[in-house]
Simulated scan of single mutants.
Amino acid sequence: MTLREVDIDVARSLACEVRSAVVGGFGSRPHAVSLKKVCEAGLFRVVRTSRTGERDAYLVPRSTAGFDVVVRDGAERTRSLARRRLRFALAHEVGHSFFFNRRMVPHDRTCEWTDSEELFCNRFASELLVPSAEVAGLPWTPGSLRLIRDQYDVSLQAAAMSAVAHHPGAVAVALRETDHPTKGRALRIGWKAGEPFVPEHARLGSLVAEAAWVRGTAQGVEELRLGHLNGQLHVEAEREPGSSQVLVLIRPRTQLELGQMELFPRAVSSALR
Rank of each mutant, 00 (worst) to 15 (best):
S34E: 12
R85T: 08
R253W: 00
F26T: 02
Q260R: 15
A89W: 01
A91V: 04
G259V: 02
G231F: 00
G184R: 02
R55Q: 14
V135N: 02
R253N: 10
E240S: 06
G184V: 06
V70A: 09
V70M: 07
K192P: 01
G194Y: 01
D68I: 05
H31Y: 13
L224K: 01
P168E: 05
G169F: 09
I8H: 07
V60W: 00
K183N: 10
A136C: 07
D115E: 14
T141Y: 04
F197D: 00
S80D: 12
G259P: 00
V208C: 06
S162Q: 09
L35A: 06
A89S: 10
V33A: 03
R239I: 02
R253H: 01
E210H: 12
Q151D: 10
E262H: 12
R62N: 09
L90C: 03
R251H: 09
G143F: 12
G169L: 09
R225P: 00
A159H: 07
S28W: 09
L3E: 13
G169Y: 06
G169T: 04
S50C: 12
A211P: 00
R123F: 03
L81K: 08
L272M: 08
S80K: 14
Q151P: 09
L59A: 13
V164E: 15
S126L: 10
G27F: 11
F88I: 03
N122A: 10
L233T: 06
H234R: 06
R109V: 14
E5A: 02
G220T: 01
C121P: 05
S126F: 02
Q232S: 11
S132L: 14
V38A: 12
V94I: 08
E112W: 08
W191K: 07
L81F: 07
P199I: 04
L14K: 10
H234S: 10
P252I: 01
R45G: 00
Q255V: 08
A163G: 13
A172T: 11
A211W: 05
K37T: 07
A193R: 15
A237T: 02
G53P: 06
S269E: 15
K37A: 13
C111H: 06
E210M: 13
A209E: 04
S206R: 00
D73L: 14
H166R: 07
A32Y: 00
L43A: 09
R83H: 13
P61F: 02
Q219H: 15
V47P: 01
F44L: 11
L247Y: 07
G95P: 03
V214S: 15
